[in-house]
């Protein structure tokens, strides 16, 4: 039997917008095994981003249970959540979310700073992961504005990888890219999955979901079906 990494039981998430309570997730139960490649699909407003945020410990469920690696996340402190995000999880976003005033290399280093890694080792690790995602070395000292979309997403992936996390969470990683760069990025995810990392990505494009071993379709805050 395979090891369970994520376990969600009857998770609900309600956002408060002014006076109104908006349910984003109504009742989601989900188990994810270590080493899985999962795509979460659904229309906008179906709750897929919320689910990803909860899986990434950026947000806590309003109700229900959530275990990550056997740890009860609902009882974890704010600092513990930060540490989990730092070491166990790597995030990749649709808008890349690179810090504009830092070079590619400095951007990649950032999670290492919060992990307390010394400068020399940080730079060494950053160079290694940047090479691994296939960014040309002459671009290491470029600022995000000097890079193309595909290159920026590579930097973002390298940043997600620098603390060697077991889990990569990606929110529409190809959403802002042309199809060629998108394919390149997806191939990187595939390779990371083959290394044994658990990949969960949110997408609304069918061809992206094809890369995943398991597709979870969300609708109105429920899991509609699974393949």
């Amino acid at each position: 039997m395979e090891e369970v990494l994520f376990e969600l039981k009857n998770v609900k998430k309600v956002y408060r917008v002014g006076e109104v309570y908006v349910p984003a997730l109504r009742d989601v139960s989900l188990k994810v095994e270590r080493g899985a490649f999962i795509a979460i699909v659904g229309r906008s407003g179906s709750g897929k981003s919320t689910l990803l945020h909860i899986l990434g410990c950026l947000d806590k469920p309003t109700e229900g249970d959530f275990y990550l690696d056997g740890e009860n996340i609902l009882e974890a402190s704010e600092n513990r959540l930060a540490s989990i995000r730092n070491r166990k999880i790597g995030f990749v976003f649709q808008q890349f979310n690179l810090l504009p005033r830092m070079t590619a290399l400095e951007n990649v280093e950032t999670p290492c700073i919060y992990a307390g890694v010394k400068r020399r080792e940080r730079i060494e690790r950053a160079r290694k992961v940047l090479k691994k995602v296939g960014l040309e070395e002459e671009r290491f000292f470029h600022y995000p504005s000097q890079l193309s979309g595909g290159q920026r997403q590579k930097v973002a992936i390298a940043r997600a990888l620098i603390n060697d996390p077991a889990i990569i969470l990606a929110d529409e990683p190809t959403g802002s890219l042309d199809s060629r760069s998108g394919d390149e990025i997806l191939k990187i995810f595939q390779r990371l999955n083959e290394e044994g990392r658990t990949i969960i990505l949110v997408t609304h494009e069918q061809y992206v979901a094809e890369y995943a071993g398991r597709i979870i379709r969300l609708k109105d805050g429920y899991i509609e079906d699974e393949k």
Binding site: E78, N79, P111
Partner: peptide, 16 residues
């Protein structure tokens, strides 16, 4: 604000 969000997602604690 966005930068703060990014830093938090990357593992920055409140104290950081």
């Amino acid at each position: 604000t966005r930068e703060i969000g990014i830093r938090k997602a990357l593992g920055a604690k409140r104290s950081d």
